[in-house]
Amino acid sequence: MTLKQLSQVKRWMVMHSARHPVELAVWNLILTVWMLGFMGVPGALLTHAWMALPLCLIAWLLPMAYAGGRRQLHRAGRLRCDWLTAL
């Protein structure tokens, strides 16, 4: 996902926060973990904490995995996902 797409989803979540408060909380958590993964790489490299690098990679890929999973569930009819139009 690009930064623009992340911003568009966040904007959709904020605009619809009254109807989807849990979605907003989950998306905020995902963005927080994404930022920790992104910022954790320099710290892991500087402190030679090689075990943290795979966790940083997983955290960095989390928004894409979450959106992809939600897209699949929406297409299968198992979960309604209105914010996919923001992508």
Rank of each mutant, 00 (worst) to 15 (best):
P21C: 08
M35K: 13
A59V: 02
E23Q: 14
W50C: 07
W60S: 01
P63K: 04
V22S: 09
Q5L: 09
L31M: 15
P54K: 06
A25H: 12
M35P: 01
G37V: 06
L29P: 00
N28H: 13
Q5I: 10
R75L: 12
V22P: 01
R71V: 06
C81D: 02
M35Q: 09
W34H: 15
A59H: 02
L31V: 06
V26A: 10
H16K: 02
H16L: 06
A44F: 00
C81M: 10
C56T: 13
G37R: 01
V9G: 00
A44K: 02
L3V: 06
T85G: 08
H16A: 11
A59F: 05
G40W: 01
P54G: 13
L73I: 05
L46P: 04
A52H: 05
M15E: 15
V22N: 13
A49Y: 05
C56Y: 08
M1Y: 11
T32N: 03
R70D: 04
L73V: 09
V9C: 03
R75V: 03
A52W: 11
V33Y: 00
A67S: 02
R70W: 03
S17D: 12
T85D: 13
L62H: 03
G77E: 02
M64C: 08
A67H: 00
Y66E: 07
Q5C: 07
H20M: 11
Q5W: 00
R71N: 06
R19T: 12
W60M: 06
V33I: 15
L87P: 02
P54V: 10
L45C: 11
L87A: 11
L84Q: 09
L53F: 09
G77N: 09
P63F: 01
L61F: 01
L31H: 03
K4C: 04
G68M: 09
H48A: 13
H16S: 09
G77M: 04
Q8D: 15
S17N: 10
L46E: 05
L45P: 04
P21S: 11
P54R: 09
V22G: 08
R19A: 15
A44V: 06
W12N: 06
N28W: 05
L61G: 03
W27D: 00
H48W: 12
G37K: 00
G43A: 11
N28P: 01
G69E: 00
A25V: 12
M64V: 06
W27V: 02
L6C: 11
A65D: 00
L79S: 03
R19G: 11
V22E: 13
Y66I: 06
P21E: 12
A52V: 15
R75Y: 01
A52R: 08
A67T: 01
H48M: 09
L53Q: 04
L61P: 00
A59W: 02
R19K: 10
R71C: 10
W12C: 02
R78N: 05
L73R: 08
M51N: 07
M15L: 13
Q72I: 14
W60G: 09
P54Q: 08
E23C: 03
L3G: 03
G77S: 07
S17Q: 15
T85W: 05
W27K: 04
Y66V: 15
H48N: 09
V26Y: 00
L36N: 00
Y66M: 10
A67V: 13
G40L: 07
G68C: 12
A18M: 10
W50S: 08
G68S: 12
A25Y: 08
M39W: 14
L55T: 10
F38D: 04
S17A: 14
R11N: 09
K4F: 11
